[in-house]
Design a protein around this nucleic acid. Structure first.
Length: 218
DNA sequence: ATTAGGATCTTCT
DNA sequence: GAAGATCCTAATG
């Protein structure tokens, strides 16, 4: 039994083929890697959130399949990348078998490879720990955009891939409500490595102010 | 340290 | 048409 161990003895895809709220805390510590012509940047995940299309009104998939969320309804182990707030991308790991939508939003991580490239992509970040301390920051640091929606995270030859590690011990993992959502705001499906400096700051959802109305053209 | 407001466009109703 | 799984900067204590 001297074999190198990943998670259990199943393939990563089988490991992921469960509800996101079970998978999420076990993804902490795993490494997400993106390789481009500019080089490789990798982050060790420190903060994640579970979203479930079946039971969770906050999930993009709760109201059924659309063009945007289609990847979530496919097999596990693929990337669901979405565009939000007119300027940011966020990336999820699809869990559950085909036909059931459930995914883990990757909220933060520590850069373990390609710090120089990550800094170039995130010039406004002062501290190293802030390079990927938020879902859109993580995507920026890694150079993830729309083109990677549907990427196979379980294929080591894929430009965007994940390396699973043995789950962190339960006492290292903290849980609490998710960030920036209005419905199901109480559900404690945000998980992070307690005390890690790269974990993003908690913010409750704040509805945006409406743009001033131009009433002159009545 | 904390708060408030703006940026910007896709998505679904 | 309105809100959104966010981030940055400026202003204030």
């Amino acid at each position: 039994m001297g074999k190198a161990r990943s998670v259990g003895e199943d393939s990563p895809r089988a490991f992921l083929g469960r509800p996101s709220y079970e998978v999420a805390p076990q993804l902490l510590g795993s490494v997400l890697e993106h390789e481009t012509a500019d080089g490789v940047v990798a982050v060790r995940l420190t903060e994640v959130e579970a979203y479930d299309g079946v039971s969770d009104p906050a999930s993009h998939a709760y109201r059924g399949q659309t063009r945007r969320n289609a990847v979530m309804f496919g097999p596990p182990g693929y990337a669901y990348v979405y565009f939000t707030y007119g300027m940011h991308f966020c990336v999820n790991v699809v869990c559950q078998v085909a036909g059931i939508a459930s995914a883990v939003l990757l909220r933060a991580g520590t850069v373990v490879t390609g710090e120089e490239l990550a800094r170039a992509r995130r010039p406004s970040s002062k501290r190293v720990a802030d390079l990927a301390s938020g879902p859109a920051r993580l995507c920026l640091a890694l150079g993830i955009d729309r083109a990677l929606d549907g990427a196979d995270l379980c294929d080591p030859a894929s430009p965007l891939r994940i390396r699973l590690v043995a789950p962190a011990p339960p006492e290292a993992v903290a849980a609490g409500p998710r960030v920036g959502i209005s419905s199901a705001a109480e559900v404690p499906w945000r998980f992070w490595l307690a005390g890690d400096p790269s974990v993003s700051a908690y913010r409750a959802h704040i509805p945006r102010k409406r743009k001033p109305v131009t009433s002159s053209q009545g």
